[in-house]
Amino acid sequence: MVEFVSIFLVVITTIIVIRVVYVISQSSKPVRNTSQKPLSTLVVLGSGGHTAEMINLLSVMQKDWFAPRYYIAAATDNMSLQKARVFEGILDDKGADGSQFMQIYRSREVGQSYITSVGTTLLALGHALWLMVKIRPHVILCNGPGTCIPICAIAFIFKVLGIRWSYIFYVESIARVKRLSLSGLLLYKLHMADQLFVQWPQLQKQYPQARYVGRLM
């Protein structure tokens, strides 16, 4: 019985490892999208400067290819969703093409104690999972702070489990000149993003797998 369980575990682990390697290797390859159907897009908004950069990017993207669009911002950040609403020209929570605006709990506020942050982190993860199950986006666009990490991690697990294959694009904030942010570094090291852009050439030299094609601002 013990032998059977251990063999079973080894097999499962091997399958998962192979699947993870497969997912990572496939993620960096371009997609053959023959149907050209619109892709549901999740936009993770940061605060102030991050949001401005994201809006600049969205404003040059084809709205009909990336639809519907779901905007997520931290629950403590009212400005970002407001800016997204202005950008979309939508005043309430739902747009005509199904675009939506949502808030997500943050795992840790600035200055919060570490003991209570265990609870809030679990809450934030649960909330992110719930939103991701509901949305199951094809495309995830993010450019910044911690809010996008649980989202991207869940998206990656969905990919491994075969629930939903989503394409993750990360644009490092223009404020990062010499080093990647913690979010950027995690996505880079764990190969979770399909493409990771940086906005300064000297940063690209340090992280050769990142791409530099100019600044957003």
Binding site: P30, V31, N33, T34, V60, M61, W65, F169, Q195, F197
Partner: peptide, 13 residues
Amino acid sequence: ANPVAKLINKHLG
């Protein structure tokens, strides 16, 4: 932002 948008489009086919 156009070069970034173009690369995203290209990646997605």
